[in-house]
Amino acid sequence: MTKKNKPEIEVKDLTIGYGKNVVLENLNFQVESGEIFCILGGSGCGKSTLLKHIIGLYAPLYGDILIKGNSIVNADEQRRRKIMREFGVTYQGGALFSSMTVAENIALPLEEYTNLSEEEIEKTVEEKLHMVDLDGFGDYMPSELSGGMSKRAGLARALALDPKLLFFDEPSAGLDPITSAELDRLLLRLRDTFGATIVVVTHELDSVFAIANRVIMLDKQTKSIMAEGSPVLLRDTSPNEKVRAFLNRDGLKSDVAEELRITEVP
């Protein structure tokens, strides 16, 4: 992986939370261009909250977030919206607008921000649907789609403006392993064919090991980053036992199995 001088995302001394409840503090990390970057952590450690701060939905308590060198924290509303248009976000449930068809959902950003003709928009929509393997589903209403299809349609919408930076909130949550694996392949394809930088919030270890170039692990207790680096390396060599335990789900499983065996045998 080639490292460029300027990171896609730079998080500096970030402290986030609601009111006086600090969720995470003093976060410092960077996302390099062209990598798949995973934010890991147990439930309730603030992964999704962190993501919403990075994409500019919430204002941090302290610190700064730079996207392609532009601070999304200190930008005024106009500028923030401009920064936002440069990336695509796929939400947990797809977040498709329920009053519009899938095609209309994908066309919305195109209608709002480009001067494309109706035909061109239609063509782009078909192209995006093809990208996420949803050919022919354009006229479906979101309610008619399954969970995986909704997520893919959401991805297609996030891709509508051809962003080079993509965010995923729990892409594989609630999906069966096969659909989940398909989604992983899709992400890899996006990275490899389009050179996209992808930030994924997840706790699905299978996909983490399958796609992530680098991960950060958040800790609920210390409210900070527990570990940062390649997932495989961390699993095998992290000095932190918690990290290894998290990433070695198998090990945990065997422990449990052992315990079960002990209680079962006598």
Binding site: R81, K82, Y91, A95, L108, P109, G154
Partner: peptide, 18 residues
């Protein structure tokens, strides 16, 4: 309210739409 719950509001916002 449902749109908010379903993160559709967030989606709008990150699409740069108010």
């Amino acid at each position: 309210g449902t749109m908010k719950l379903d993160e559709q509001i967030c989606a709008l916002e990150t699409m740069g739409i108010r």
